[in-house]
Design a protein around this nucleic acid. Structure first.
Length: 289
DNA sequence: TCCTCCCTGTTC
DNA sequence: GAACAGGGAGGA
């Protein structure tokens, strides 16, 4: 267990955390039907979203993920119907259920009233302190109007090295390329730093200077780190630790993220901290080339 | 392609 | 009370 003052740092939802949320949410809400939705902050609804009123009577048939987006798949009767409810958690978005008549919190942005198959009510909360998160009710055809969705890069866990190499062409700093959701989906600041450290590649290496063997090494590192984090339920997500005991413990496995000035776990030299593309970046100047 | 802004909780 | 955390939009 981390000291309390450190916990808040490690709750940014990237791919493994969103995957963890999707998996932990599924058993709670699968088969549930929307009774109503209470949007408490209008700006938390994406401009391209259908009205949340259209969710009424829609059944949740699956909970999936695309990049960092969490998706509730709904049983739509027609193609023009709402068939997806998408959440972009961004920095501080939290999605969790409450069976009792839980009061909305200070940061609750939307409350969904669901009915279980048994007829029992269930509440689904979308809380978001920093209000960067967004909700989008849509369907596959309508999603094509959303540039971010249309241009979202491939999923890293199923990507092949020969598919990644051309995507890095013309890109400058390697880390900036990894963070670019058009290049590859789902990687944020934590997993970019961790993957580059594992692959032994400097964050500011020109992305298109990588040899084939280095691209392969990079992708292997990305996949290893993401899979390892998923197996540990991601890095700690406060709301889910209590809800179903999914503690999320990957923050204990960080090699470099948040460790600038400390010793490199491989060679013992001091880890450097810089800023790259406006993001805090930590790397080992000896191990990474 | 790079930088700034959005936003709030927490720390220094 | 300033600095910092950061994903993505938008402007330079």
């Amino acid at each position: 267990m981390l000291p309390r003052r450190d916990c808040w740092k490690f709750i940014v939802p990237e791919l493994p955390e969103v995957e963890t949320v999707a998996r932990s949410l599924y058993p709670h809400i699968h088969g549930c039907v929307f009774a109503s939705a209470e949007l408490l902050r209008a700006q938390s609804l994406h401009p391209l979203s259908f009205s949340l009123d259209l969710l009424k009577d829609k059944k949740i048939i699956d909970v999936t993920r695309r990049g960092k987006l969490l998706i509730l798949n709904l049983d739509a009767r027609e193609n023009s119907d709402v068939s997806m409810l998408i959440f972009h958690l961004r920095m501080t978005g939290r999605l969790f259920t409450a069976s009792a008549n839980r009061e909305q919190g200070k940061h609750t942005r939307c409350k969904f009233n669901l009915l279980k198959e048994s007829g029992e009510p269930l509440q689904l909360f979308f809380d978001d302190a920093r209000t960067f998160g967004q909700i989008l009710a849509s369907n596959p055809a309508r999603l094509q109007d959303w540039e971010f969705w249309r241009e979202l890069g491939p999923e890293p866990l199923t990507l092949q090295p020969e598919e990644l190499a051309p995507r890095l062409k013309g890109k400058r700093a390697l880390k900036t390329a990894l963070l670019d959701q058009k290049v590859i989906a789902g990687i944020g600041n934590i997993y970019a730093d961790e993957s580059l450290f594992m692959a032994g590649l400097l964050p500011d290496r020109p992305a298109d200077s990588l040899k084939d063997s280095e691209v392969e090494k990079l992708l292997k590192a990305v996949q290893h780190i993401l899979n390892l984090s998923i197996s540990q339920c991601g890095s700690s997500i406060r709301d889910y630790r209590d809800a179903d005991g999914n503690a999320g413990s990957f923050q204990n496995s960080f090699s470099v993220y948040g460790k600038g000035g400390q010793n490199c776990p491989k060679c013992g030299n001091i880890l450097q901290k810089t800023r790259l593309g406006g993001r805090a970046t930590v790397f080992c100047p000896v191990c990474q080339k």
